[in-house]
């Protein structure tokens, strides 16, 4: 119970929002974007934060999910759920095949390979226009329905995304305190020591790569249906960077860090709207400043300060009583 106390508060807040502000643009439109980014950041954090493997191409799997749903339903008239499943299978196979050679690499080389993957997939979206509609993208996806109930309003989409997001966050929290989570952290801490304890590090890395890719892929499918439109722009190199920023901004390795990073970065454009032309510059500046002065991330830094204060306070009161 105590382990998940923070999670329950977060879940209640998420589910209360539309009840308090049912018609707010911030809930039904921004809220969906926030939830999308949270799932993506949390899934990337499994790979980057837990296992310590950087990826600059996470948007590729998000995009593959979105395009499989869009192309298979629009061009081939496939059932939306079937299309989503096909996307998941394709991404599972692709990420599994790529995981071994990619994750054998370390540091800058790993960064380069994942970046390359992201760029290649993005160029494919732009160039394979007989399927993808090219730079203009494609629109007109069928309505997604769950057990016969169509998701046909902004509010229903919010509920769908909120529940999917809360499930993903719970998965991520569960993994942290499990054999698999510890194996991931061991790979992060010292790969050689992990191997000496019988951890098949190549397999562990490969599994988390596939798991995180599949989560991103499902998010992409839902995103495509919700937007009713996909274009390559949403899955560019820059979006991959933005996802990495979310994870690092909140605090690498912390699920709630990723959640906070995703929330902040999704709301930033809404705030920066006022500055318009300054948006790109301010975004870059924030990224630099946080990484230089709080490399452990906002959330983790806050958490540490909080516990330090708590400790000092309890020590203070202990002094009084003695």
């Amino acid at each position: 119970m105590k382990r998940l106390a923070g999670y329950y508060c977060f879940a209640i807040a998420t589910l209360m929002l539309p009840l308090l502000f049912p018609d707010s643009y911030y809930v039904t439109v921004v809220g969906v974007t926030v939830c999308t980014n949270i799932v993506l950041a949390v899934s990337l954090n499994l790979l980057m934060g837990y296992a310590g493997q950087i990826s600059l191409g996470h948007a590729a799997f998000f995009g593959l999910g979105a395009y499989s749903s869009a192309v298979l339903t629009i061009k081939y008239g496939m059932n939306p759920w079937l299309a989503m499943t096909a996307g998941v299978i394709a991404v599972t196979v692709l990420s599994y095949v790529l995981s071994r050679p990619i994750l054998r690499l370390k540091g800058h080389y790993l960064a380069m390979a994942t970046l390359g993957l992201g760029i290649i997939v993005h160029i494919f979206f732009v160039q394979a226009d007989q399927f993808t509609g090219g730079p203009d993208g494609i629109s007109g996806l069928p309505v997604l329905s769950i057990l016969g109930y169509p998701i046909d309003s902004d509010l229903k989409w919010y509920w769908t995304f909120a529940i999917f997001m809360l499930a993903s966050v719970l998965f991520s929290l569960n993994i942290a305190h499990s054999r698999s989570g510890r194996a991931l952290a061991a790979v992060h801490g010292s790969e050689i020591a992990a191997q000496m304890l019988g951890v098949d590090t190549a397999k562990v890395k490969s599994h988390v790569f596939v798991f995180s890719a599949v989560l991103a892929c499902i998010t992409g499918s839902l995103f495509a249906h919700q937007q009713d439109f996909v274009s390559p722009e949403s899955f560019s190199f820059f979006f991959s960077i933005e996802l990495v920023t979310m994870v690092v901004l909140g605090g690498l390795g912390s699920t709630f860090g990723a959640v906070i990073g995703a929330i902040l970065l999704s709301l930033l454009p809404e705030v920066l709207l006022v500055f318009e032309d300054f948006e790109v510059m301010i975004f870059g500046a924030i990224l630099m400043v946080i990484m230089i002065f709080l490399p452990q991330g906002l959330f983790v830094a806050m958490e540490e300060t909080f516990f330090r204060l708590l400790k000092r306070k309890s020590q203070g009161s202990a002094d009084v009583t003695s």
Binding site: I241, V244, M281, G284, A285, L287, I292
Partner: peptide, 19 residues
């Protein structure tokens, strides 16, 4: 700074300069 941190710092710098 770790490798990941420096990567992000220079990416941030690149976005900033572009801005």
């Amino acid at each position: 700074a770790t490798v990941v941190t420096t990567i992000i710092i220079t990416i941030g710098a690149s976005i900033f300069l572009r801005g």
